[in-house]
Simulated scan of single mutants.
Amino acid sequence: MGSPDTAPGQNVSAWRPRVPGVVEVLHARFTEYAYPMHVHDAWTLLIVDSGAVRYDLDRHEHGTPHDTVSLLPPHVPHNGSPATPGGFRKRVLYLDGTHLPEDLVGAAVDGPDLRDPLLRRRVGQLHAALAEPGDELEAESRLAFVGQWLRERLRDRSRSAGRASAPRRDPVLARRLRELLDARVVEGLGLAEATGLLHAHPAHLVRAFSAAYGIAPHQYLMSRRVGRARRLLLEGAAPSQVAAATGFYDQSHLTRHFRKLVGVTPGRYAATAVKKASSSTGARS
């Protein structure tokens, strides 16, 4: 049975380990829940332990069978839904640019799903190390190997495609709007103000952004806000505080968008982090 904050068949656990480069660890099981289009400000390294996920990235459909490691780059919209009747169980690492620089985004967009049994096993071992308090050095070492493998594979792919590694090319207007949204995640940005600052017609501005990134400006902004909310919740902040700190109108506004993008309420999400911290404290005592 699911908790009052989750639908039946859904289970989520998330925490932020003391390992440089790892923004968040997420373990989840979903039977019917489907993620809408959204973005992350971190690299998403995903493995599926049972079932399969289908998702769209840069307007192309992809899938994640159990022997695949998927690497989704930051700021590129994607969704996700079960591809098998029983849903899926996944483990995800959100990584900053320490191990994966932004100049590899283009290669990751071209081929996010990596079929390599050794890499799959190493990512699983990394998750195991991250779950055990006191094993931070092992986790850092395993992450270093995984990061090196991914960098080499993506750079090889760029060379074989006959191009130098480069950031994903974006239309100038769309990029300028994204920069404005990134700078005003909490304060927000109205369309009228954006068009005045960028000297563009409102409809043209929205079309340019959507064409470049595959997501509407308001969806992008909400994704960024929810991303910040996740970090604050894992640090122990209360949902009411998080709502105010991340630009939502109130806690119910946060809850509605958080549940839509993450699959559980902020309270349930925070509770998993508390439970993880408690079990770690007990293991050390």
Rank of each mutant, 00 (worst) to 15 (best):
P202K: 10
A283K: 12
G247H: 00
Y33G: 04
L197K: 10
A131G: 09
L181M: 10
Q251T: 11
R284V: 11
Q125Y: 13
S141Q: 11
Y269L: 02
V12M: 09
Y213L: 06
V226R: 01
R18C: 15
R228H: 10
L234R: 06
L57K: 03
V76T: 08
H60R: 15
T64P: 11
R176W: 03
P133W: 04
A161E: 10
A166I: 00
R259S: 15
T265W: 05
R59F: 12
H204W: 10
D182P: 00
E179I: 09
L198M: 08
A107F: 01
T281E: 13
F209H: 02
V123F: 00
T246W: 03
F258R: 03
T265G: 08
L137Y: 11
S240A: 13
D135N: 15
L180H: 03
I47G: 05
R151Q: 11
S141R: 12
L46G: 04
V53H: 04
D58R: 02
K275Q: 13
Q241C: 14
L180P: 01
P20H: 04
E140C: 11
A128L: 11
H66K: 12
S50H: 12
G263H: 02
R157N: 09
W43I: 06
A273I: 00
V12E: 05
A34E: 15
E187V: 07
P202F: 08
R54D: 15
L104F: 02
V19T: 07
P36Q: 07
D5S: 14
G282E: 14
L232G: 05
T246R: 05
Q219G: 15
V206Q: 10
R89P: 11
D103Y: 04
S240D: 10
F258A: 06
L221A: 08
S13D: 12
H204M: 10
L221I: 07
D41G: 13
G87Y: 03
D103M: 04
F88V: 05
F145H: 12
L189G: 05
G51L: 01
P8E: 02
A129Q: 09
H127K: 12
A183Y: 03
A194V: 03
R231C: 14
Q10E: 14
D113S: 15
L205R: 05
Y35I: 07
R89G: 15
G9C: 07
S278I: 09
A216P: 08
A238S: 12
L205D: 03
R224H: 05
H199M: 14
R151A: 07
R224S: 07
D250Y: 07
Q148M: 12
L95Y: 02
A273P: 00
S223G: 11
V186M: 09
P167R: 12
Y35F: 13
A243G: 06
R178Q: 11
L71R: 03
L191C: 04
